[in-house]
């Protein structure tokens, strides 16, 4: 990212130095080609913030940015889970439906007088169980990831609908709501406060753990190796089978955690919650620079991707002149532009 000023400086000096410098840049870029999409996502995120600030104002301020984090904490958690799955070259389409099932079940149990902490644990375990089921189907019965998680998606959505088809309201005094307590870090003028909720903290912890596991442990190396070439990974003696099972459990568990965070924030659970979130999460991961074919990508990139999507929604809402029917078209086009931009960047890097 520091290339631009340097290039500007050298353009005034001798031709040989420019060539040398360009060579060096090219080598650098080639060495780190896989980081480029993530860097691009980051640049685009910053550009969106700058554009939003100039065009609509009130973007770079504590309240907007903390709301961005609070409102997208669940998406960040989902994106971390999907990063694992997509890195291995798989896909998990069930996360949105798991959130629906887990939150409806959680709210109903909580309203029925269950201990809130038991309920929270159950909500997370529902996710883990669903993930485990997909993992077993994929790993031991050779079902394609797409189909197995699609079946889980139908199953979870159907189970949620069987429980209830109307919005279920979480009791006002439920301890689950504690996850949405707003902690003021900096008390700004008027409502311009820097606010953090436990949900955001959980998301941050999930990101940190995800980062550590992927980039600092053997499991993480195995995940990348499977994405690069599953057969080679197996021939190298890596625990491919167990790891593939685990990543779906991780993805399901994180969906369960996302469900707790989301339910606590909204206080309402419904069987249609989370429709299309699997696509949002996939988009976040892809925007963040993870290849859909697996093998390359970063957890932090996915976080940026999730925030880009969140910011995009903020900008669309701020614009106001955009008809609500247009939102999905804009979402689609922006997602498309991102993919195009990244392809351009990768193409130049190679």
């Amino acid at each position: 990212m520091t290339q631009t000023p340097e290039r500007a400086a050298t353009s005034t000096s001798g031709g040989a130095r420019i060539v040398d410098f360009l060579d060096a840049v090219q080598r650098k870029v080639q060495e780190r080609a896989s980081t480029l999409p993530t860097v691009a996502a980051l640049i685009i995120f910053v550009a969106m913030i700058v554009y939003g600030e100039i065009a609509y104002g009130r973007i770079v301020q504590f309240s907007t940015l903390s709301n961005l984090l609070i409102n997208n904490a669940h998406l960040v958690i989902l994106a971390v889970g999907l990063t694992f799955v997509i890195l291995t070259g798989g896909i998990d389409l069930s996360v949105g439906a798991i959130i629906a099932f887990s939150s409806v079940a959680g709210v109903m149990l909580s309203n029925a007088g269950w201990n809130p902490y038991v309920v929270i644990l159950l909500m997370i375990l529902i996710g883990s169980a669903m993930g485990l089921a997909s993992g077993i189907l994929i790993q031991y019965f050779n079902v394609q990831p797409f189909i197995a998680t699609l079946a889980m998606m139908f199953l979870a959505r159907g189970l949620a609908s069987m429980l209830s088809t109307v919005p279920e309201r979480l009791g006002d005094d439920s301890a689950i709501r504690a996850f949405a307590t707003q902690w003021k870090i900096i008390d700004g003028p008027k409502v311009n406060d820097l606010v953090v909720t436990p949900g955001v903290l959980i998301a941050a912890i999930v990101v940190a753990i995800g980062f550590f596991v992927l980039h600092r442990t053997r499991t993480g190396r195995t995940v990348y190796a499977i994405g690069g070439s599953e057969q080679s990974a197996e021939l190298m003696g890596l625990p491919v089978h167990v790891t593939k099972l685990w990543i779906y459990v991780i993805s399901g568990t994180l969906a369960g955690i996302a469900s707790v965070v989301y339910t606590s924030r909204l206080g309402i659970a419904q069987n249609i919650t989370g429709i299309g979130w699997e696509l949002d999460a996939i988009a976040a991961v892809v925007i963040g620079g993870t290849l859909l074919t697996g093998g390359a990508g970063y957890v932090l990139g996915s976080v940026v991707g999730a925030l880009v999507l969140g910011l995009m929604n903020v900008l669309i809402t701020r614009d106001g002149g955009i008809r609500p029917e247009m939102t999905t078209i804009i979402t689609g086009s922006i997602l498309f532009i991102f993919v195009m931009l990244q392809r351009g960047v990768i193409g130049r890097g190679r």
Binding site: M152, L155, R157
Partner: peptide
């Protein structure tokens, strides 16, 4: 009919 997806999923699995 709200349970159709679950039923479908089970058949598909």
């Amino acid at each position: 009919s709200s349970a159709t997806p679950a039923f479908k999923a089970i058949v598909i699995i």
